[in-house]
Design a protein around this nucleic acid. Structure first.
Length: 426
RNA sequence: GUGGGAAUAGCUCAACUGGCAGAGCACCGGACUGUGGCUCCGACGGUUGCGGGUUCGAUUCCCGUUUCCCACCCCA
């Protein structure tokens, strides 16, 4: 048997109803903030992710699905292509390619699959789904304003509340600009030098490759040491500090609760200033349901003009997972308003005509078959959750009035053809 | 990529120290020829994930492999 490949899965009804619920709630909320949809290709030049996400990140160095395309001629070498591991780089690429700065501030959202070659576990798949948004444009259009950061964060709080996800927590930090980070990294290396020998092997490695990540360490014995290390907050320059203060002030005034976490660092190279994560308990080790931040230098690093921006990506798989605990996807499924039961030879055609009429009135119609015994039609209609069953037999056709039975109450009446739509919608 | 656990009917799970592979639910049919849900009866359903080994005999023990799960690494 051929099975779905490692780390991929089929989404089936009734669960798909839950996915649609999440996606349409997101679209509704985004619309209220005037975000518009963008759709970018699911594969791009490998170079885009190497330059955008960062050559040294785990994502680029070992977690991408990359292959070489065929060249135009036999002798010619093809391009290196990659399934997108995230969507921000693609959006910024499109921003540059289509000169979207002509529109001032762009508020864009996307919903779609992403791909990472990681070891699968619960809430982590090789094809996973993200719902994300980016506010990007020239600084003169307000893209660099703390108002954007606060707007995006408040939008996310609204969406999570709307989805009924109780108990989310917004963790907030500022990772400063590139200069701040350089100074902080130096200080961190210096501070780590005398103590790193006492830390876990992971931290010893991180101290060399990416000192920032030492803050992610969960080894209890290392925590007292980590507590003594310098924090990025001490290295923010005047502009970054002011920016961060303004974001916090707006959030407080609009009533979005947050927790400051000066150990929060993000894995992708392009993040600057505001960095955030929404977490939710009861999701195991994968407790982050969304993450994001500002990426003021990303456009330039991809060869574009200065275009400050802020965005986020929601792990849709994890949102759906947390909803499955509280709500039943079953209840979100569309159910037929009426089940048509053709009874006897020639009745399929009669039922088809009726079904067509009813569907024109936006009535959800399910249709049986004339060879079914009536008992079977009733069973099928009941199992499908239909509200009514309509019998289409010789007698009914002759009288041009049909037996309509309410499957919940058991009440059955004969209804003239012309009255059916109104009667069914009652 | 590292460490650990698991895999038996469509689903949830049994099967004693290694001795005929089972139940509940679901599905299909019947009791009931144009009236469902409840009840009763019946039928269907399996190379025990896959491949090898030990054995008279393997779902059971051993080795390999695949997938899922848990935790790392990392991340949404």
């Amino acid at each position: 048997m051929i099975k779905a490949v490692r780390g991929t899965r089929d989404l089936l009804p009734p669960d798909t109803a839950l996915w649609n619920f999440v996606e349409s709630a997101a679209r509704d909320v985004f619309r209220a903030y005037n975000f518009q949809e963008i759709r970018t290709p699911i594969f791009e030049s490998t170079e885009l992710f190497a330059r955008g996400v960062g050559e040294e990140t785990d994502i680029v160095s070992k977690e991408m699905f990359t292959w070489e395309d065929r060249g135009r001629a036999e002798s010619e070498k093809g391009n290196s292509l990659t399934l997108r591991p995230e969507n921000t780089a693609g959006v910024v690429r499109a921003y540059i390619e289509h000169k979207l700065w002509d529109h001032g501030l762009n508020k864009l959202y996307y919903i779609g699959p992403q791909f990472r070659r990681e070891r699968p576990q619960k809430g982590r798949y090789r094809q996973f789904y993200q719902i994300g948004a980016e506010a990007i444009g020239p600084a003169s259009a307000g893209s660099e304003s703390p108002a954007r950061d606060a707007e995006v964060l408040e939008m996310l709080a609204t969406l999570l509340d709307r989805l009924g996800i109780a108990g989310w927590n917004l963790e907030l930090n500022s990772v400063g600009c590139l200069n701040d980070r350089a100074a902080f990294n130096d200080a961190l290396r210096k501070a780590l030098e005398p103590v790193v020998g006492k830390m876990c092997t992971d931290c010893q490695r991180r101290a060399v490759t990416n000192p920032l990540r030492v803050f992610d360490c969960k080894v209890p014995a290392d925590q007292p040491i980590i507590d003594t290390l310098p924090r990025i907050s001490q290295f923010l320059d005047e502009a970054c500090h002011t920016h961060f203060e303004a974001v916090k002030e707006i959030l407080t005034k609009v009533g979005v609760p947050f927790t400051l976490n000066d150990r929060l660092v993000r894995g992708l190279d392009y993040y600057t200033r505001t960095a955030f994560e929404f977490t939710h308990g009861a999701l195991g080790a994968q407790n982050a349901i969304l993450g994001g931040g500002r990426y003021d230098g990303l456009s330039e690093s991809l060869g574009g003009p200065a275009a400050p921006g802020i965005g986020f990506a929601i792990g849709e798989d994890r949102i759906v997972m947390s909803l499955q605990e509280s709500s039943t996807a079953e209840s979100m499924l569309t159910k037929p308003d009426v089940y048509l039961a053709p009874l006897g030879a020639g009745m399929n055609a009669q039922a088809a005509r009726l079904a067509r009429e009813l569907r024109r009135h936006d009535i959800v119609v399910d249709l049986g078959d004339e060879t079914f015994r009536l008992k079977k039609s009733f069973e099928t209609a009941t199992k499908a959750g239909a509200k009514y069953i309509l019998i289409v037999g010789e007698n009914e056709v002759k009288a041009d009035a049909f037996a309509l039975k309410n499957l919940a109450t058991g009440e059955q009446v004969s209804v003239p053809r012309a009255d059916l739509p109104n009667k069914i919608r009652e």
